[in-house]
Design a protein around this nucleic acid. Structure first.
Lengths: 335, 335
DNA sequence: GCAAATTTCGGAAACGTTTCCGCAAAAAAG
DNA sequence: CTTTTTTGCGGAAACGTTTCCGAAATTTGC
């Protein structure tokens, strides 16, 4: 009653195991009549092929891994959503791993995934990743690999990102347009490409408008530290009239401090930040955001990964995919 | 260079494959000296056992599946976070499947997971699930199964939930305490236990305070339809002075309509809703929420699932785990 | 009407583990 | 000094597929 397998089907039908296997896979060497008989019985008994036997034999698992820093973040949730959609449609399974921005954890995960458990992997690297040996080792093993969002510049694999620099440029310019003279940039403290990209966009915008009063505040994962940094910033005599938050978290921290210090947004301080939170529209005041095409990034990265897994040729423009972010102007930068 | 397996290690060391296997697994039949030699070489060559071969032989995959309606929702994200933490610590892998609240999709997923790909499954059932055959079939197959949050009452498997009814009772009573006389309940239109639990808590609170003017509005997945329902509600002459939203989405929809109709929260309408959005504190006005212990639910459900998988005895109180939700009072129900 | 090609299937090897069974050599028991 | 037990290891089966290699039976070519 328990496990119905090929052997059981074969016995029942007086066929060889190989014949049954072929019939189920619509092999042309099997007559239509036999195929029908086999499939009928398989359906009747609810036969499901054992994936481990199949994977072992074929050396492919129909499974991919997604490695992300955290899931409790709208951006990555939306990415997962995109990935899962594509995977589901292609009949693939999705393993999820969280690094919590811990380099060592990331290393362990990659280590353990180099043994055939998955056919390929997509990753948004941890912001504590300085040493890239584990990524390089994974690539060297020949396994399909795709970066998305937080990519590793040094390793030449397909990547799907957003135009961080351009988006940051636009956001900064937007702040300038609405009258800001002194704009602070809350930067993600790490040597990630997204971090430097956003910073450079910020600097370019200032430069274009002839400003050299950049203020770059490095923020991190700890909310209280961030708030303290922002508090000092807003209480200093160098107080900015605009803040550009490189990640959602820092925008939230800014709101918190402003409420605490009774600083009115947007009258006394204008604020814009990267964020994929749809509820940003309900904030007090509604937050102007740069929203990244998270779902599309996930979808695109997965599509490319599957192409590599299935050894299809990648189009030239699929090796470096960049999808534009969109700036949504709301009250936090209004007059 | 490519695949280093037991056979290769064995040849290199002049040992039998079986010996190598045992050595790596610290079998007591192997001398310490041999173990050391084997492990040294395995480490040197970066040997990773093939999980499919292992799973096939042992009939266990060290993998669990999590089936949820959506991931782009703070509650489920936090659940995943909890699950992943436990799984990671126990060396298990986590497959994620999204149903998008589609019964058929849910059915297909469960179907395909009944073949040994995973050692167990935890699920929060889709709200379109009326027919429970697929769940029953899965249980009948003897595979470990745990429900969380959106459980299926008819099937007797361990479940981890929150005290929906009590939480709803408290929320309703909170609205009464701050002066509401006519409270509408935005209900999730489905026959899910969480839906009926929350509704009954709402009704109980009204009854306790001698009120019989219940207003139950069924809402669904489509935002515009929900907004239309809420719009009609707030424009009718039966307009309530308090709204209790059964799920986060409906609270958001209420904000949207209130902004649109210029209804002041909390002066003209008080609002409370189930929500795990930490940014609710930044809303205009800050939203009073019932926050479910999502992380703990995920953690607990996973812990129980692993216990079943590993055939450990479940404590009596682990078959029905209920973790309290917490009500966070903010301005949306303030005076 | 016979050789050749095609169709349809069976047997067995292979994937890389784990584990059952057996068997020497060494140690313990008597 | 013999018998039993223990220790340490090797050989081979087994898990359930897929696929290679035939091999009858049927059809086609001439």
């Amino acid at each position: 009653m328990d496990n119905v397998n090929l052997k059981k089907l074969a016995e029942e039908l007086n066929l060889a195991v190989s014949t049954v296997s072929r019939a189920l896979r619509d092999n042309h060497e099997i007559s239509q009549e036999t195929k029908d008989r086999v499939k009928a019985l398989a359906a009747k008994l609810g036969f499901q092929p054992n994936p481990h036997a199949s994977s072992l034999r074929q050396n492919k698992s129909r499974t991919i891994a997604v490695v992300i820093p955290e899931i409790q973040n709208n951006f990555f949730s939306q990415v997962m959503n995109g990935v899962e959609d594509v995977a589901q449609r292609k009949g693939y399974h999705v393993l999820i791993y969280l690094t919590h921005d811990d380099h060592n954890r990331e290393k362990e995960i990659l280590q353990v995934l180099r043994n055939g458990r998955v056919d390929g992997l997509m990753i948004s690297v941890s912001n504590t990743t300085t040493n890239i040996e584990h990524l390089e080792a994974y690539r060297q093993s020949g396994m399909p690999l795709v970066f998305f969002d937080r990519v590793c510049e040094e390793i030449d694999v397909p990547r799907v990102t957003t135009d961080d620099s351009i988006a940051a440029f636009k956001a900064t310019e937007h702040l300038l347009k609405v009258g800001c003279k002194k704009i602070a940039f809350l930067s993600l403290a790490c040597n990630l490409s997204i971090s430097s990209g956003r910073r450079s966009g910020y600097l370019k915008a200032l430069a274009k408008h002839g400003l050299d009063n950049e203020m770059i505040i490095e923020c991190g994962t700890d909310d209280e530290t961030n708030r303290q940094n922002i508090r000092e910033l807003l209480q200093s005599d160098q107080r900015p009239d605009g803040i550009f938050a490189a990640v959602e978290k820092f925008a939230i921290n800014t709101y918190e401090v402003c409420h605490e210090l009774n600083i009115a947004i947007p009258q006394q301080l204008k604020l814009v930040g990267f964020s994929n939170l749809s509820a940003a529209a309900l904030f007090d005041p509604p937050l102007s955001t740069i929203v990244q095409p998270a779902y599309e990034i996930g979808k695109e990265a997965a599509t490319i990964l599957f192409k590599i897994v299935e050894k299809k040729m990648l189009l030239p423009n699929e090796k470096r995919v960049m999808i534009a972010s969109e700036i949504v102007e709301r009250k936090s930068t209004g007059k």
